[in-house]
Amino acid sequence: MIELIKQIGLTKKQWWLIALGALGWIATIVASGLGWNPFPVNWSFTNSGAFGDSFAPISALMALIAALGAVGAYKIQSSEIARIRAREEEFDKIAQSDRARAISRQELLDRQTQKQIFENTFFQLLKSHRDLVNGLDLTERETGRQHQGHDVFRLMIEKFKEILNGDRTVKNVARVWESFSEHFRYDINHYFRMMYHIVKYIDNSEIEDKYLYIQILRASLSEGEIALLALSCDYGEGRQKFKVLVEKYALLHNLSEHEIRFWKLRSKYSKSAFSRDMGSTDFNEYNSGGGFGS
């Protein structure tokens, strides 16, 4: 009721005047009913009817009060509806914020799970590759000395250079590589296919920092392995598919300057093959194709 009175908008003084006026009329009616006649008029139905008509202003006043009450009630209802709508909108915003946080948490969990799965597979592949290297062995015919693991690749490169006999023309290197890769096909073909699939696995993944895992792989390669990788991608099967990945991820980065110059690799590879910072950082420009491995 108090809220309704406030919504009508009348002052306290105005409300007091209306109340006093209404009480005055009511007091007059009651006094007349008790026999008090302040007017020199004989009472009759006709006179009482005329007297009743004199209350028309009161009726009008009460109608006005009712109208003002209706207006006040409408304002109160409108204000309440507006508050309810504002509250609902606030609840909707809170609900949307909660859903967004829930989605964000789920996406984070999905990324963490995806990373864990990726790393488990990556390090298993890397272990298999290292086991393959450690399982390699090579015996020198002249001395009978046996070489194992990374040392096998060092010896292969030395023998390759010995067979070249100083002739490092493209034609001669290609000829020697063909004979070399055929002689060691059971060792190096399997080795390079395994390495290719590891790099391709990183490249195809949706992991954020792919280069970090490339660095881990790259750090495990010996000088001889990197040199043979460069030759394979220049003269062997790696030309078709692996070379673009070598240039994309700077797989020749740890190769010594001596080996780079000896094999004239800077004229055969883009700068990005030796240093990621020197090459393009937009990996989308690379497209793999061909058939090194499956």
Rank of each mutant, 00 (worst) to 15 (best):
R145M: 00
S205W: 00
L23G: 09
F274H: 02
L138G: 10
S44Y: 03
D187E: 15
V152Q: 05
I84Y: 09
S181L: 08
A82S: 13
K159Q: 15
F123E: 07
G293N: 00
S32W: 14
W25V: 12
L34K: 06
F122V: 04
W177S: 06
D92I: 01
L126D: 14
A219T: 02
A50R: 15
D98R: 13
A50V: 08
D151P: 07
S294R: 08
Q112W: 10
T121A: 02
N284T: 15
I58K: 13
F45H: 11
F91H: 03
V246N: 04
L125W: 08
L265C: 00
T46P: 06
S272K: 07
R141S: 13
G144D: 05
V173N: 00
I8W: 03
L212V: 07
A19V: 12
L221G: 01
R168T: 08
E80T: 07
Q215S: 10
Q148L: 14
K268M: 01
A273W: 02
N287G: 01
Q146W: 07
I216V: 03
S232A: 15
K264M: 02
L10P: 01
S32Y: 15
E237V: 05
F122Y: 04
G135T: 00
S179Y: 04
G291S: 08
K271Y: 05
H129K: 11
R141G: 10
S78M: 14
V199Q: 01
R175G: 04
I202E: 00
H197D: 04
S272Y: 01
L217E: 03
R193C: 07
L109P: 08
S256D: 03
L126S: 12
T28M: 14
M195G: 06
N287L: 12
F262H: 06
K6N: 13
I81C: 07
G238D: 02
L251M: 09
H129P: 02
S59D: 04
L132E: 11
Y74S: 11
S256H: 02
M156E: 08
N120L: 07
K171V: 10
K268P: 01
D277M: 09
E285W: 09
E178R: 15
I103K: 09
M1L: 13
S256G: 01
S128N: 12
R193V: 10
D187S: 14
L265D: 00
R87T: 06
W36H: 11
L231W: 01
R193L: 07
D92S: 08
R239Q: 13
H197N: 13
I76L: 13
E206G: 05
R193M: 08
A27L: 11
I216H: 12
T281H: 03
V176T: 03
A19F: 12
S280A: 06
E88G: 00
I163C: 11
T46I: 11
N172W: 06
K271F: 05
L138M: 14
N204I: 09
Q240I: 10
T143S: 15
S79T: 11
D131F: 11
L10E: 02
D234A: 07
I8N: 05
T113I: 08
R175N: 10
K93I: 05
G144I: 00
T113M: 13
G279H: 02
I103P: 03
S256M: 03
L265P: 03
K248V: 03
Y191R: 06
H183M: 14
R99A: 13
H258V: 15
L126T: 02
R101S: 01
R141F: 11
A73N: 11
N189P: 04
D131S: 10
K115P: 05
E140V: 06
N189M: 09
